[in-house]
Computed example of a mutant assay.
Amino acid sequence: MLFQQSDNRRHPRPPRERRKQRSITPTRTPPLPLTSENAVIKLGKTTASKGNVGGRPSVVDDDKLAVARARHAKGDSVTAIAKALGIGRATLYRHLGESA
Results as ranks from 00 to 15, higher is better:
residue 51 G to M: 09
residue 97 G to W: 04
residue 59 V to G: 01
residue 2 L to N: 13
residue 37 E to W: 14
residue 8 N to M: 02
residue 30 P to S: 07
residue 85 L to E: 11
residue 14 P to Q: 08
residue 53 V to E: 13
residue 25 T to G: 13
residue 42 K to C: 13
residue 35 T to H: 13
residue 28 R to E: 12
residue 86 G to P: 05
residue 59 V to K: 15
residue 86 G to V: 07
residue 4 Q to N: 00
residue 20 K to D: 08
residue 69 R to E: 15
residue 71 R to E: 12
residue 86 G to H: 11
residue 47 T to V: 15
residue 49 S to W: 02
residue 3 F to M: 07
residue 32 L to A: 03
residue 60 V to G: 04
residue 4 Q to H: 00
residue 57 P to W: 01
residue 81 I to N: 01
residue 61 D to V: 01
residue 43 L to F: 15
residue 68 A to R: 02
residue 93 Y to S: 01
residue 72 H to R: 10
residue 26 P to L: 09
residue 38 N to V: 08
residue 36 S to Q: 14
residue 84 A to Y: 13
residue 22 R to S: 06
residue 72 H to A: 12
residue 26 P to M: 03
residue 46 T to E: 12
residue 87 I to Q: 06
residue 78 V to D: 11
residue 27 T to R: 09
residue 94 R to C: 02
residue 56 R to N: 10
residue 3 F to V: 02
residue 59 V to I: 02
residue 97 G to D: 15
residue 93 Y to M: 12
residue 54 G to R: 02
residue 55 G to K: 11
residue 70 A to Q: 13
residue 14 P to D: 10
residue 28 R to N: 14
residue 45 K to V: 04
residue 96 L to C: 06
residue 7 D to S: 00
residue 64 K to Q: 10
residue 44 G to Q: 15
residue 85 L to M: 05
residue 53 V to A: 09
residue 64 K to L: 14
residue 27 T to P: 08
residue 57 P to M: 05
residue 67 V to L: 08
residue 26 P to G: 05
